[in-house]
Design a protein around this nucleic acid. Structure first.
Length: 178
DNA sequence: GTCGCGATAGTCT
DNA sequence: GACTATCGCGACA
């Protein structure tokens, strides 16, 4: 069972190395997370939840382990793990990973053989995650999150979040490097 | 390898 | 009416 207890930034760091798996269109696919960002609910000007609950971000206010999927730049899907007590709307954005299963299916969905899971929009496309999965549970839903450890020797780096104009002093983007 | 830029539409002001 | 939690391509080095 996945453990999402504790501060959202600690959870984000712990999640590096975890597996995200889907079985959609009959195709099993899985990636190991290598890039995530933490968003601290209503205390974070960069969070979608900063100005309260809206139609789009409603699932952020659910219980820990809920999947929050939104459309980015009108084109791409991006997915988050909801963290913390219901109503706090803390979340961890899954930005990238490396393929560990179903690479053929992911290459087909992406229409190319390189750079298939190294960005938030790409990750969703490769795993076939869409807005239809918003609000489902990562514990027993169509998109699953399972704990795993990073391979030996990997290190973690903290940087400012990407594409964010506010709160840039907060280094809440975490990247795992070989 | 890095840099610049256009596409595109939901969401909120 | 403005603003994105992005991507892919082409130019350059």
């Amino acid at each position: 069972m996945i453990d999402l207890s504790g501060d959202v930034l600690d959870v984000a760091r712990r999640m590096l190395g975890w597996r995200v798996t889907t079985v959609l269109d009959g195709e099993p696919t899985a990636v190991m997370l290598t890039e995530v960002e933490a968003y601290r609910g209503d205390q974070d000007p960069a969070s979608h939840a900063y100005r309260g609950r809206t139609r789009r971000n409603a699932s952020m206010f659910g219980e820990a382990g809920t999947l929050y999927v939104y459309r980015s730049y009108g084109i791409h899907w991006c997915m988050n793990v909801v963290v913390g007590a219901p109503g706090t709307a803390h979340a961890v954005l899954m930005r990238g990973g490396i393929p560990v299963d179903g690479q053929d299916a992911m290459e087909r969905r992406r229409g190319r053989e390189d750079h298939i899971t190294d960005g938030p929009g790409k990750l969703c496309q490769a795993l076939a995650v869409t807005g239809a999965h918003d609000g489902t549970s990562l514990r027993d839903g169509p998109v699953r999150l399972t704990p795993a450890t990073l391979p030996p020797g990997w290190t973690i780096e903290a940087t400012p979040r990407i594409g964010i104009a506010k709160a840039t002093h907060r280094h809440w983007r975490l990247v795992a490097l070989p």
